[in-house]
């Protein structure tokens, strides 16, 4: 059975009057096999789309939790080959989340071709600007991969339009000004940003940064098409004594969040 496309996943969620749940795990964390198990546990709990993180030595958009996971993955010698191996193991649509240098080092053409062969559907690039995306746009088009850029509350309207215009699949809206990691409350900036994005794009909009609870997921699902959760899962893994317990806890949280994204939308 072939996997759904991103568009199909968003369309199905829309027909079910809910938001899509997107979960993040860095490849190679806590081990190469462990990251594959965690992803299966996310999917068992109801995650619709998986972001496979490509650990990087200098992750300026990430808070302490994901930094720690990245350091573990790097100690495990996780490189492009391992990231692609994890992608090929995922049973739902998966994107790679990567800072730019590892992709440039691997080769833009080579990376996009290898990712497409591995069955990945796209790439989220938190530090690639549209101005630097010449070859990236050409090669992702050629390999039929989605390009997801991350916009922020500080992005002005004219730039939002320009960046959204270069996105495909969905637009990643950062809920607040800051780095990844759980927050106690969601800022109003998330709904404001999504409202501004709606005026300039018809693409689905997924909100990430700071979402960790079912209640927050339900809040975001009221105005966004997707909810992205990363640090909250990673934190459970860092706290658990072993991979079996990690997977159990991750599935439980995914199930709560999955309920959350079903409570938010009123129709």
């Amino acid at each position: 059975m072939s996997k759904e496309s991103l568009a199909q996943v968003f369309a199905r969620a829309k027909s079910e009057k809910r938001a899509v749940l997107i979960g993040y795990v860095p490849a190679g964390f806590p081990t190469l096999e462990g990251s594959k198990e965690l992803i299966r546990a996310l999917i068992a709990g109801g995650v619709d789309i998986v972001e496979v993180g490509f650990a990087y030595s200098d992750p300026v958009m990430d808070g302490a939790i994901i930094q720690e996971a990245a350091e573990v993955a790097l100690r495990n010698k996780t490189g492009a080959k391992e990231v692609l191996e994890v992608v090929s193991s995922v049973s739902v649509p998966s994107l790679v989340m990567s800072y730019w240098n590892p992709i440039e080092r691997y080769g833009v053409k080579e990376f996009t071709e290898a990712l497409a062969s591995a069955g990945g559907v796209g790439v989220i690039t938190p530090d690639l600007t549209i101005e630097e995306s010449g070859d990236w746009i050409d090669e992702t088009e050629r390999n039929d991969l989605h390009r997801v850029y991350v916009v922020a509350p500080s992005t002005d309207d004219s730039r939002l339009a320009k960046v959204a215009n270069k996105c495909s699949g969905f637009v990643y809206a950062a809920s607040l000004m800051g780095v990844t990691g759980a927050r106690n409350s969601l800022a109003d900036s998330a709904s404001e940003l999504v409202a501004r994005l709606r005026k300039v794009t018809d693409l689905p909009i997924a909100v990430g940064l700071g979402v960790s609870t079912a209640e927050q997921a339900a809040d975001v699902a009221k105005f966004a098409d997707g909810v992205i959760v990363g640090s909250a899962f990673i934190k459970l893994v860092l706290q658990a004594p072993n991979i079996t317990q990690s997977c159990k806890n991750v599935t439980l949280l995914a199930r709560e969040l999955s309920d959350g994204v079903r409570q938010g939308q009123v129709g």
Binding site: V60, E131, Y149, A152, A174, M177
Partner: peptide
């Protein structure tokens, strides 16, 4: 293609989160 600013040949440019562009 979008015009490249702040470059020295192939070097320089901006590789930052969108949050910092403004």
């Amino acid at each position: 293609r979008i015009e490249l600013v702040g470059h020295f040949g192939p070097y320089g440019g901006r590789f930052v989160p969108e949050a910092l562009i403004g």
